[in-house]
Design a protein around this nucleic acid. Structure first.
Lengths: 315, 315
DNA sequence: GTCAATTACGTTCTCCGTAAGGATG
DNA sequence: CATCCTTACGGAGAACGTAATTGAC
């Protein structure tokens, strides 16, 4: 019915030592208590397991039969607890994160590489997805948590701001805009524009402002920042790219100019399913991401990305 | 460290029902106690296993990892206890008995057959061995117990008399002795004698008397009663055979005459290793053997064997 | 007499149930 | 406000340790 791991251990100790006193010490109890433990065990399994007098201790036939099972049970318990301990110690485990392509370009891989060095046993998975899909993955539990520019509803998701990302205007370096130190939406008026996909957060965030600035929508709409850069370099138009994605737009013929508008920042949230506990490994990465986040809280502009990651600002 | 089967069961119940209240009922405890049990379990394994609020209960990643182990542990416990219970119920198990060839001829096989019908799950093994070997097998634990004409020393063995067996003189039916109703050792004086093996108890018991009766030792010494009978029928001599072995000497040309000497009885003991508990199955057979033993306690002559088992007494 | 297991018995602590508390829809 | 999980608290019983007892050598 109810046999405890403690009694199993007692059995195994006595089986091995064949001495009550020695086995008792090994189990950190008094000889008396140990004797009682064996008695309880025998009562619970309903059979005498040891033949014993003051001199000899030996297994009964039932004891031998129980021995095999006891070893298996003890091994299973050991393995199970050890697995859990490994997970807690981050010696093993699996973490899946969903993040937008901009973060997946450089910053997040770099962070994950560091995490991987610290916790070699943890299997990491990174899904670079657009905003809507990110929330769906988190909701479905297919990723442990997500990084996203949209928070989702508060009933289902638990989100906290990581940092704010600035936007950059990317244009051919021959473009007059490339010479400017900073740009306003108004500066883009009438310019042909290449869009990122509508399901992505960049489009969703900038759409209203761009419409107000009366840019000229070329109708071109791509998913990859690399493609976007190619189109811009090809002269199809200009575009707006979040800071951390600039690396993907780094081309000899392109320039990036920061967009200096108060509200034109792109928040990045850590998003998890509300009420769900993260695995130890996921929690560690969750914490690490917060620690490694670029400076930038609501109100303050996002810190500039690493210099090597940004295209030349001007000719 | 110490996790009990009870907590494993609680975990499995909650995993399945996803309701504290329902799982608590299944475990026959109050909802409060069940909540505490889950809390203790989580404390012992060192990880939160369930995410829960008043409406929903779901496994955490660690809980899912623990689930697999919990199922295996529960299965092992179940299997082990079930096996032990089967043994106690004699639904399974193994019993090995050592017995002298005379008992193995008819009486013991008949008894074992009956026992087998009552306990079909028990695997029976019968070793027909001579006296010395029987004690060695019991001492080594290779048989659960033995039936033997020698008790062995009391320090190592625990023996109790089962019954006393009479001796019969077996001779050709044409022999003058075959006409007698009973014989004394003196009647055998000068007769050529065929011996059973010296390690057997028959030889050991009868040797002194036969020497005193001045029988003529032919030097022939066999292990099988059937061979003995063949030699007697072939005219090599006569011999002495315990009652229960007469079946093996049943030949048209042979006769058996009881040996009427007070001390010429052959005790049969049940012998077990001192201080050793018998398995449930072995204990049952041990008891059954006592119950089915032929009448015959010290002082009373052994009951006659079944008529069909005895050779014709006279021509 | 010595050593080892067991029993006796008082103490401590675990575990459960009743009842109150708190969160959720 | 109804439901369900959790916390508070007190009692019952389990489990342990000290010490006395039994048994083997």
């Amino acid at each position: 019915m109810n046999l405890s791991g403690r009694l199993i251990d007692a059995f195994l100790a006595l089986e091995e030592t064949r001495r009550f006193a020695v086995a008792a010490r090994r189990c950190n109890v008094s000889a008396s208590a140990f004797s009682q433990m064996i008695g309880r065990l025998e009562e619970q399994v309903g059979a005498r397991l040891f033949d014993r007098d003051t001199r000899n201790v030996a297994l009964t036939p039932e004891g031998q039969a129980f021995s095999a099972g006891a070893h298996r049970i003890a091994d299973e318990i050991r393995a199970t607890l050890s697995d859990l301990k490994d997970r807690a110690a981050l010696d093993t485990g699996r973490v899946a994160v969903a993040a937008p392509p901009s973060l997946g370009a450089d910053w997040l891989p770099r962070l994950l590489a560091g995490f991987q060095r610290t916790h070699p046993g943890v299997a990491l998975r990174l899904l670079d997805v657009v905003s809507d899909r990110c929330l769906a993955l988190v909701a479905a539990g297919e990723v442990d948590f997500g990084l996203n520019a949209q928070r989702g509803n508060d009933l289902e998701f638990d989100s906290s701001l990581l940092f704010n990302e600035r936007f950059f205007v990317v244009c051919p370096r021959t473009d007059p805009l490339a010479a400017r130190a900073a740009l306003k939406f108004a500066d883009l008026k009438g310019r042909p524009f290449v869009q990122t996909v509508r399901t992505g957060s960049v489009w969703q965030q900038t759409q209203a402002w761009l419409a107000k600035a009366q840019v000229h929508d070329t109708g071109l709409e791509v998913t990859q920042f690399g493609t976007l850069a190619g189109l811009i370099e090809g002269g199809f138009g200009i575009s707006i790219v979040p800071e951390l994605a600039l690396l993907l737009c780094r081309r000899p013929g392109l320039a990036a100019v920061p967009l200096d508008e108060r509200q034109a920042v792109r928040p990045i949230y850590r998003i998890r399913r509300r009420g769900r506990t993260l695995s130890a490994a996921a929690q560690a990465l969750w914490d690490e991401i917060a620690a490694q986040a670029p400076a930038g809280i609501p109100g303050r502009p996002a810190r500039r990305g690493r210099r090597a990651a940004t295209p030349a600002r001007s000719g």
